[in-house]
Nucleic acid binder design. Structure first.
Lengths: 158, 158
DNA sequence: ATCAAATATGAATAACTATTCATCATGGGA
DNA sequence: TCCCATGATGAATAGTTATTCATATTTGAT
C-alpha cells in the first residue's frame, strides 16, 4: 500500500490529541481509521517521526511528538510569528500565507526549522510565504501542521 | 543497603552528562562507580525519577532527565531567576540562597515545581531562600541539582 | 519497457523494559 | 520485645519495542 504518508499523518494526529502508551495501543487506534499495519512498521514510523516517550503520571509513559520544544528561545519566536501572521489560503495545492510586512522570512524560518514532512518547502517574500505541501497532504493537514508548529495560530485560523 | 539515594543521584549525574540508551548500559556505568544492582531496580529508579526516552540522531533513543523543559514559558522564568540569583551558602546542612530584593519567591517556585528529590523543600522570604536538602545529600549534590534546574547558574556559582 | 537500486513491509525473533512474586530489612505501635 | 506494615531488592517472567531476514513494491536510469 502506498499510504505511508497517510499513516504518518494519522500517527501524529493521534499522538498529539490523546495519551498513547504502547505501540499495540496505537496500532488499534490506526485500525479504527482503516489503517492496518504491524507493530514492526509502527516501531519504524515512530523512529522516523522522532517521537519521544515521556513520563506521565496517569499512564506511566506516553508518546509525545518532538517538534520544537527543547530549543531555548523557541517560544518567543513562536509568539512573534503568531503576531505577524495574517491569513492562509490555498490555491492549486499550494498554501499562501500572508503576514504583516517584513514578517514572512522569520515565520518561514520557523517552519523550515521544524521541517515537517507534510511540507516540502517554503518560499518567503516580504509579506507572503508560499507553502509547498507534499503530495497526498490535504489543506487540513497543512493547517494542523502549522498549528503544531505555532500553537497560537489556532485562534487565528478559520 | 541504604544507598538508594546515592544510586538515584548517580543515575541523574550519569544521564545528564552522557548519552545512555539502555538500562543495561546504565547498569554497567553504575557498576564502575561501585554500585551493583539489577535491571529491575533500575527500571523502578527511572520510573521514579520520571526519566524520559527521547529521540537522538546518534544513538537512536537516549534517556533524558525530565526537569523543566516541556513547559511553555519555562526558559523565560529560568533566565529571570538566574538574573536575580546572588549567592548560595551552606550552614548546618541547610542551603541559603541570597537573591536580589523580591526575587526569592519566584526562584523558590521554580525549584519547587521541579521538586527534585535531593531537596525536601524550600522556604522563601523576600531576598533569601532556605533550601532543605534530604539526608545524605551533599552540598555539591544540591548545587548540581540547582544547576540542572537553572543552567545559567553554572557561571554564577563557585 | 527493463533492470537495478532503493524503499516499504510483515513475520519471526532478538533485545530491552516492566512487573510479579518472594524475601529481607526497617521502623513504628501494642 | 514482638508483630505488623512498609519499603527495597533480585530472580524470574511477562510485556513491549527494535531488528533481521525475506519479499514485494516503487523509482530511476538506460
Amino acid at each position: 500500500m502506498g499510504n505511508r504518508t497517510e499513516r504518518l499523518l494519522a500517527i501524529r494526529n493521534i499522538i498529539s490529541s490523546q495519551k498513547v502508551s504502547s505501540q499495540e495501543e496505537l496500532l488499534e487506534l490506526l485500525e479504527k481509521k482503516g489503517l492496518n499495519y504491524t507493530q514492526a512498521t509502527l516501531s519504524r514510523d515512530l523512529k522516523f517521526l522522532k517521537v519521544n516517550k515521556i513520563s506521565d503520571t496517569e499512564k506511566g509513559y506516553i508518546y509525545e511528538l518532538p517538534d520544537q520544544h527543547h530549543m531555548p528561545g523557541q517560544e518567543l519566536a513562536e509568539s512573534y510569528a503568531a503576531q505577524g501572521f495574517v491569513s492562509i489560503q490555498f490555491a492549486n495545492k499550494l498554501g499562501v500565507i500572508k503576514t504583516l510586512p517584513g514578517y514572512a522570512p522569520s515565520i518561514a524560518v520557523l517552519i523550515d526549522k521544524v521541517n515537517p514532512f507534510e511540507i516540502v518547502g517554503t518560499l518567503a517574500g516580504d509579506d507572503t510565504i508560499l507553502i509547498i505541501p507534499h503530495d497526498n497532504v490535504t489543506e487540513k493537514d497543512v493547517i494542523n501542521t502549522l498549528i503544531i508548529i505555532i500553537p497560537e495560530l489556532k485562534d487565528k485560523i478559520k
